[in-house]
């Protein structure tokens, strides 16, 4: 099946600032893609281009074959901005019904999406009585109504507690299962909890990674950390044997490549009773993200202005 989002060499220049440089990105139906980057990396700019609010200064972009912002594109796209404050005087149901009508969605959908985001009980209360999490879920309900073929979510999980975050990823996984494409942005990998199919990382307007998370983990090739705790009387001999750095007077910390892990572990087990405990930690999602969002920070391969 053909891609819903097809961006080719998209660049966006605001006066002196290059917001996006030569970004190419595809999103297929049923795919969930996370767009990562610092504040100002170009995530929201890309969303605004996809919505047709602004036109890229170079490159081409299409949404299911339509120009962004055209009637055809707007009919299949749903959007959740990073910050939105719905009219406080309206009830949750009225807000969702409003957007359902604008999108020409059947009104039966309203109750269904309210149920999905767990707002049925509060649906007839005014938005002003909602908690922050409930407002966030109302925003999601508004985006889900009308079964959009492409869901654009700008930092949808910021401010959600871990439990609602998990529920949120279940919801968008369901959208993807039904064939909808999801493009969501986030500050960091740890917020994603490895829930999306693919991760695209923007750094200063350039796409520095675009691959499944496991590929990124392999590509980053960050060292694995091994901590060995020994009895205080034996710590010196363990340090002499294994090398590495002394920590807290009772532990030794080693870093190794993925391929070396088993060899080092067997050496540690060879030390026998000298070792009290071993702790192995693979690189965290945040470390991987930091690796990609900072990679080549100094070489700055930015084109001329």
């Amino acid at each position: 099946m053909s891609e819903i989002v097809k961006a080719r060499n998209v660049s966006m220049k605001f006066k002196a600032v290059d917001a996006l440089t030569d970004v190419s990105l595809d999103v297929a139906p049923g795919e969930q893609v996370a767009l990562l980057g610092h504040n100002g990396a170009g995530k929201t700019t890309l969303f605004r281009i996809l919505l047709g609010f602004i036109r890229p200064t170079a490159g081409s972009i299409s949404i299911a074959g339509f120009t962004p912002g055209s009637d055809g594109a707007r009919r299949i796209v749903s959007y959740l901005p990073e910050q939105v404050a719905f009219p406080k005087m309206l009830t949750g149901r009225e807000v969702v019904r409003f957007y359902a009508r604008l999108k020409g969605a059947p009104l039966d959908d309203v109750q269904a999406v309210l149920a999905k985001v767990d707002l049925v009980d509060a649906a007839d209360r005014r938005v002003e009585t909602y908690s922050k999490g409930m407002r966030q879920r109302l925003g999601l309900a508004q985006a889900l109504v009308g079964r959009p073929a492409l869901l654009l979510l700008d930092e949808p999980t910021s401010g959600l507690d871990p439990l609602s975050r998990q529920h949120f990823y279940e919801l968008i996984a369901e959208v993807a299962r039904q064939g909808g494409a999801v493009l969501l942005s986030s500050h960091g990998l740890s917020e994603l909890e490895a829930k999306t199919d693919r991760v695209a990382i923007l750094r200063k307007g350039q796409l520095v990674a675009d691959a499944p998370l496991s590929d990124l983990q392999r590509e980053a090739n960050l060292p694995i950390r091994i901590r060995v705790r020994a009895a205080s009387s034996e710590i010196d001999s363990v340090h002499a044997e294994m090398g590495g750095a002394r920590i807290n007077g009772a532990s030794v910390e080693l870093f190794c490549e993925l391929g070396d892990k088993m060899r080092i572990l067997s050496r540690i087990s060879g030390l026998g009773a000298k070792v009290e405990d071993v702790d192995v930690s693979p690189p965290t999602l945040d470390q991987i993200y930091r690796h990609f969002s900072k990679v080549g920070d100094d070489e700055t391969p930015r084109g001329m202005l």
């Binding site: 919505l51 796209v77 404050a85 957007y99």
Partner: peptide, 9 residues
């Protein structure tokens, strides 16, 4: 909210 309205058809 204007972004949402303008994003709709």
């Amino acid at each position: 909210t204007l972004q949402l309205v303008l994003a709709s058809p």
